[in-house]
Design a protein around this nucleic acid. Sequence first.
DNA 1: CGCGGCGTTGAACACGGTCAATTCTTGTGG
DNA 2: CCACAAGAATTGACCGTGTTCAACGCCGCG
Lengths: 245, 245
Amino acid sequence: MTRPMRPNGPAAHRLGPKHLVSLKGLMDFLPANSRQELLDMAMPESAEAGTTIIADGATVDQIGFLCDGLLGLIKILPDRRRHIIGILAPFDVFGRIFDGPSPVEVEALSDVELLRLPRDRFEGMLQRFPEAERLFLAGLLKEVDAAREWVLVMGKAKVVQRLAAFLLFLGRHDLRGVGVAQNRSGHSTNVKIAIDRQTLSQFLGARHESLSRAFHELADDHIIRINSPYDVDILNMAALVAASG
Amino acid sequence: MTRPMRPNGPAAHRLGPKHLVSLKGLMDFLPANSRQELLDMAMPESAEAGTTIIADGATVDQIGFLCDGLLGLIKILPDRRRHIIGILAPFDVFGRIFDGPSPVEVEALSDVELLRLPRDRFEGMLQRFPEAERLFLAGLLKEVDAAREWVLVMGKAKVVQRLAAFLLFLGRHDLRGVGVAQNRSGHSTNVKIAIDRQTLSQFLGARHESLSRAFHELADDHIIRINSPYDVDILNMAALVAASG
DNA sequence: CGCGGCGTTGAACACGGTCAATTCTTGTGG
DNA sequence: CCACAAGAATTGACCGTGTTCAACGCCGCG
C-alpha cells in the first residue's frame, strides 16, 4: 500500500529468502508446476512502521503472508478510539479467506516485509490440493489459539505479569525487524521493541505510566536491562517466566 | 460423556428441532442423499452443567455442534488453576478439525444439548462439497473474531465494564437455556445467567466479591434490576452500552 | 532557543483483592 | 413443617496496586 509494486519477473529474482521461507510449508504439498504458479502470483511488498495495510471494514481480494516485522490488529471503536487486540509475527497469514470485509484494521507496528497473493487464485489452488488446504486450516486454528492465549494474558491481575508475558512472546517468535534476540554472551537475550510505550500500553490494557513502572520493576530485580525504551536485554529468562505468572 | 448414547434410529426420531437448526445451514449446501447421511451420523447427547465434554489435551475423533446451553473453554494452567478463556453459544461448533489434541478443556456451563459427528466422515463430506466447507471455514473465522473480541473486553480496566460487556454478550446471542431476553413490557429485557458467580468471576478475571459489587453498582444506577443472582433485567440498554466503555 | 513528544517520577486517590462476618437459599433429616 | 447445615451471595474493613494528575528531564526539530 505504500510503495509501487515491482514488475513481475522470474520469481527467484523478485523474492528474497524470507519470502521463500514463508511459502515453504505450503510448497511442500504442491507438485512442481504448481509451486511455480504460487511463486509467480506472489507479490512482495515493503511497508514502514505505522502504515495501514488493510483499512477497517475494507474488502480485500488478497491474502497476505507476513515475512518480516510485526503487524498489529487494531479494532476501531464506535467512538473513534483505537485498540490493539492482537499481534501477528512472521510467518503468520492475514486477510479474510472465504469471507467478507475485515472487521479489524491491520497496521505495521514495525517496518515489515510481506507477500500478497490474489485471493481467488489462491483459494482455487487450495481447493485443488487438499493437503495444502489442511495446512492452511491448521494455521487458522493456530490463530484461534493465539487469540485465546491473549485472553489469558489479559486476564492476569498485574501489569508486570502482562509485560513479562509480552516480552516472552517477543522472545518466542524470533522477530527479526522487531525484537529478536540472540543468545549473545552467556544467556542474556536482546529484544528490540518496535512500538512506542503509548501504543504498547493500550495493547496491554494499562496506562503508559504503569507500564514504565513495570519495566523498571523488572529492571530493579535484574530480570531485564533497559538499554533504551526500545531495546531491552533479558537477563534471567527463568525469572521472567516466573514473573509472568 | 455423561449419558449413554441412544440407539441409532431414523434421524427424524432421534433429533429434536434444536438439533436440526444447528445443522440447517450446512444442509443447504448438500444434495438430498448427503443430507440424510449427515443426519444419520449425528449423535445427539445431553449433559448437565459442570460436565466435562472434552478433557484437556484429549485427542477427539468427533466434531461437536452446540444446540442449546453454554459451553466454556477452560485453560488448565501448569499450577492446576483453571481459567475460562471463551464461551460458546448455540450454534457454535467445537472440536479440532484437521488437527491434533485440544489445547483447552470444554465444559458445560449450563445443561446443554449437543450433536457429535464422527470426525473422519465429517471431514470427508466437507471435502466432497466445497460450498459446505466454505461455510464451515466462515464459522472458524467467526471464532477467531469472537476470541479477539474477548481480548478487547478483558483489556478493560474496571470490573463493571467487563460485566456490562458480558451482559451485552448474553443479550446479543439469543441464548436459550442460558440467558435470553425478550423485550417484555416497554424496553426492559430479561437475561438469565446459567452459571454461578464463582464461575463467572473467573471468566471475567475478578473475584466473586468484586463481581457482586459490580452487579449492585449497575443496579444502584437503575441500569439493571437483579431479580435473583441468576435472573437480571436490563432496564437501560443505552446506559449499559455506555457502562461497558 | 523554545517548543512538543515521549518517557520517567512523584503524590493522592480510587479500585479491586483479601480476609472476615452476615444474610439468603437450598436441601436434608428429624 | 421446622430445625439445621452447607453453600452461595452479599456486605464491611483493610490494604496493595494501578490510575490519575502533575511535574520534570530528555531529545529532536523548527
